[in-house]
Simulated scan of single mutants.
Amino acid sequence: MKFLRYLPLAALAVMTASCSKDNDANQQSKLEVRLMDAPGDYSRVVLDVRQIEVHLQDASSPDGWQLLPFQAQTINVLEYVNGKSALLVSTDFEPGDIREIRLLLGPDSYLIGRDGQRYDLKTPSGQSSGVKLKLDNVSLQERETYQLLLDFDVARSIVERGNWKPGNDKKERYLLKPVIRVVAQDLRGGLRGTATPAAAMPQVLAIRSSITVPDTFSTAADASGSFQLSNLPSGTYRVELFPTTTAPTGQAAYRSVVQPNVTVTNDKVTELGSIRLQ
């Protein structure tokens, strides 16, 4: 404490600000928003998603909407079936309750039918006020990852006008009335193992291969060779270990190791056991 008395005030300010930022970072949650789909009888169904927001107050309050860091894009939802999902948002987030999530859709949603023709999808309510989805008991805790999985039901979301006939304006055939189920969960899956020899000091990658665009999570083995990855979403992973040192003279060279088809489930840590790199 005597040492601190002799520090310049500017240095103390920098140290205080740095500690404050570190503490804030340690108290953050992480929020993921993903989209998946149930198959439908079309070649393509493309959603024009412009914004994603969450509501942090009671539903009756018009305030409390927070814009999430999402890049506007068109998404062919039929690419994300059979366990595959599209990562829309992954961001640090203040711990607390989330009441609703809202998707604002643009005018460029469309489908390609089995006839190969393009049909625009009109969204009467979604284009003006957004598609609002209520959330029950979603509370983000410090240092935890929370996932909102938007399960889009193509068959129920696309409505064909009863009076439309071939030869009529293609833009008038279908309406888009999104039916989306929200699956909310804490991500508490994980995996761990031990690399031998520990002197190889490997980097460890866990690549979730069960989605269209794989997620990659990384860590490094400690001095004893142990490693663990936490807050992983459920799925099938490819685990890769890359030595960062060179074996001593006279010993076999360290090698990279790949373990495919590693299953991670929520609320469970998958044990990989001892992995030899030599």
Rank of each mutant, 00 (worst) to 15 (best):
D63N: 15
K177T: 11
T246M: 07
K122E: 10
G130A: 04
P95S: 13
T265S: 12
A72C: 06
S61T: 12
L175C: 05
F217L: 10
T196Y: 03
V262D: 00
K170D: 11
L9K: 14
G130N: 01
S139I: 11
I52H: 02
A220N: 10
L175Q: 12
K165D: 10
P178K: 07
L67Y: 06
A59K: 13
Q71K: 12
G190H: 04
R276E: 14
R5K: 15
R156A: 14
E100F: 02
S20D: 03
P202G: 08
L175N: 13
A198F: 06
G106S: 08
D115Q: 10
G162C: 01
T270G: 03
Q228T: 13
S129A: 09
L47F: 06
L105G: 01
Q203T: 11
N26T: 09
K21C: 06
L229E: 04
A206R: 01
L149E: 10
V46H: 02
R34S: 12
S90F: 06
S128E: 09
V182C: 06
A17P: 02
A247M: 08
I211R: 15
S61M: 08
L4Y: 13
L78H: 12
G83D: 08
Q141V: 04
A252E: 09
S85N: 08
D136M: 05
L187R: 07
T196I: 12
R161W: 10
E100K: 12
Y174K: 05
P124T: 11
Q127I: 11
V77I: 15
A221H: 03
P39N: 09
I211V: 15
A198N: 05
V182N: 05
T270F: 03
R34Y: 08
T263C: 00
T236P: 00
S209D: 08
L272W: 03
S90Q: 14
V269Q: 04
G130D: 00
V183E: 08
A200N: 07
W164G: 05
V183N: 07
L277Q: 00
S218K: 13
P107K: 14
A86F: 07
E79Q: 13
W65P: 02
M15S: 06
A184D: 05
L35F: 03
Y174F: 15
K30T: 14
Q66L: 15
R50A: 09
Y119W: 10
P248R: 06
S129P: 00
R44K: 15
I112Q: 12
P62H: 11
D215A: 13
E240D: 01
T145P: 00
V54R: 01
A17E: 09
K84A: 14
P214I: 07
G190W: 02
Q278C: 01
L205S: 14
G190D: 05
D97L: 06
F217W: 12
E53C: 05
I211L: 06
D92A: 14
T212V: 11
W164L: 12
S218N: 13
L175G: 02
V81R: 08
G106D: 05
L104W: 03
Q28A: 15
A38P: 00
S210I: 05
D63P: 00
G190N: 05
K268A: 15
G130M: 01
V46Q: 03
R208V: 04
I275W: 04
E160I: 06
P39K: 11
D37M: 01
P107I: 06
L105M: 13
Y237H: 03
M15P: 00
V77W: 02
C19A: 15
L277H: 01
A199S: 15
V131I: 13
